[in-house]
Design a binder for these strands. Structure first.
Lengths: 192, 192, 192, 192
DNA sequence: TATGAATGAGATTTCATTCAT
DNA sequence: AATGAATGAAATCTCATTCAT
């Protein structure tokens, strides 16, 4: 029998969520067995089912965990004391970061999971809602003008998303911001 | 003993691919069992393995099948005898069609497959390559001007993709084309 | 639902090995299904795969098990406190015993396994290595003389092996020992 | 549809037996699928079952084929017009040949067939019966003397068998014949 | 005599989940 | 709060054999 290490419930649960999340991103949900999660942590299988009802249960928890962390970051940017355009470029930077994190891993995984897909989509939607808010504020303040603001922002976010995926050459920050300016009909160089 | 119905290999193989494809879209790859595919057709399980090495093998075949069908459609548009702007809007229309087809189904599927995801991505990339070609031809003919043509088209395609997914209200054809015009810096109404 | 009987891993693993070994000898490896092994013990099929990676895995384990048991017996004879010629005849007796055990069973089995064959060969080789040691010791002590000691012992062991297989009439112990004496150029009757 | 090559029944049947035999020795019976046999020849599966009732049926035929070929060779030696001792050494030489043929192949095959085993055994028994005959003739003619002629010859054949298998260094013809002489209590060098 | 698509029983294997300890 | 042996349903895959052509 292994030496039993007792932890606070919250700490243990969080440990499982983080470990599962890492493995899910690395190898895909379908290729991550419960046994692997518990072996990685070094606990018994039964403990997993003490904290989670099922595998699906931990998947949801992992997604929720990632999204709520992102929410904190974005919320801080929005309420921070920097100028309007800076906020836009900060959003874009944050976006690039999480994209890279989610995608670096999901490339390897050739299995048929849509875990990263859901995660990405939820992240995109979150950042999208923040951006929509920011843009509509900008419009009412007269900082920019757009015929279809919501649609334009949607296309911007998901367009960038794909651009990061597919381009052979890594897209530089400058080009990226230029594309944002173009999409939002902003003066050239204002986000730089 | 079942009465044995013999078919030409090509016909049978194609029958399996189409049946599998339909089920994959309806219920996801993971939720579609080999036994279901063969039961749907009404043949023995062994026959499946006579034509395909494994489940993965048929997945690849299904994807290839969908993509090659799309390729024919797009290729016909490109070589057809209609004017330049008409071709663009035809591409967009085709795009909308397949998107609807892939997505109508993938909504139901709550499993963890990314079959539709891969399919969508490959379709997007195919249409993207056709559009890039068309746009660069247009640029060299002086029909339009863009600073980052490839990046712009990429963002356009994937932006639209998401727009169709997410907007509560269905995006009308008019708005869609307007967004395309805006993205490509084309005169308002020219694609209508 | 079955009542679950929990055992120590070592005990369970050993239980599986012994049961599998018995069935393998009785019916041949190919004719022994995993399902039979677990049904015989009265556990679930999954438990088998909890302890063994595959059917091949348990086959190896069974062979190893038989051989290591034989090794203990032979090793005890070698180090025991009896006279030199007695050791030889004890080796022969042990040999006869295991031969009978392996062959009694393998007669029934008309399938195409060579499980008993491998087992027999490994046993033969083990006893052979012990005998070679004993003989060479005897030679250096001047207890016997042989031109080709290793070859002679090899032929002796495998010759006896076959003799036990094939002769219609069961070979008596006396004849057997006489043949050993003849092979090793020992005085007639010294092993009796 | 393939071009259909029609052959005489005997020729076809023999073609299947020879091909099957080659594959059985190369890869083992269990690893040789009916499909492989017919593909190697270039005919359809159905044809196999036109000539053979089952896989077991062809296995028997293959064994019979090998054995009857050996029988011809041995029979020729026995009735040939050479001296007594020469016949013995010719038998041994033939024996070495077929052993090499059966074993060179069966080494590779790590599967659980006893095809080579059966084949070897039947060959050994055939040569054994010829040798017993020869030896007993020799005894009645006063050419040699043995206490247990049959047992001795049995041990000789099977002992040599193993010797060829196991010895790291290939056993030379001279040593081999020396061992035969020793076993049969023949004067040293008479077989050389 | 020959074809090869089709059959189907059954084997091995996987793994999320349970529960006696 | 923790263990890990045990469960069992279900999935994938194999291949000797059959039979419509």
């Amino acid at each position: 029998m292994k030496t039993r290490i007792v932890k606070q419930p919250d700490e243990r649960k969080s440990e499982i969520i983080k470990t599962a999340g890492r493995l899910f991103l690395q190898k895909g949900v379908h290729n991550t067995k419960i046994s692997e999660i518990v072996e990685t942590i070094g606990v018994a299988k039964g403990l997993f089912y003490y904290y989670f009802k099922s595998k699906d249960d931990v998947i949801s928890a992992v997604i929720e965990h990632f999204i709520s962390e992102l929410d904190v970051v974005l919320s801080n940017i929005l309420s921070s004391d920097i100028n309007y355009y800076k906020k836009i470029s900060k959003f874009i930077d944050t976006y690039v970061q999480i994209r890279r994190m989610f995608n670096k891993n999901s490339c390897n995984n050739n299995d048929n999971d849509n875990f990263s897909y859901i995660l990405l989509k939820k992240s995109n939607n979150l950042i999208l809602s923040y951006l929509k808010l920011l843009i509509s504020t900008g419009i009412s303040k007269g900082l920019l003008r757009l015929r279809y603001p919501d649609e334009t922002v949607t296309m911007l976010v998901y367009g960038l998303n794909e651009l990061m995926d597919s381009s052979q050459k890594k897209i530089g920050r400058a080009v990226m911001l230029a594309l944002v300016e173009q999409s939002l009909s902003l003066p050239c160089g204002i986000l730089a």
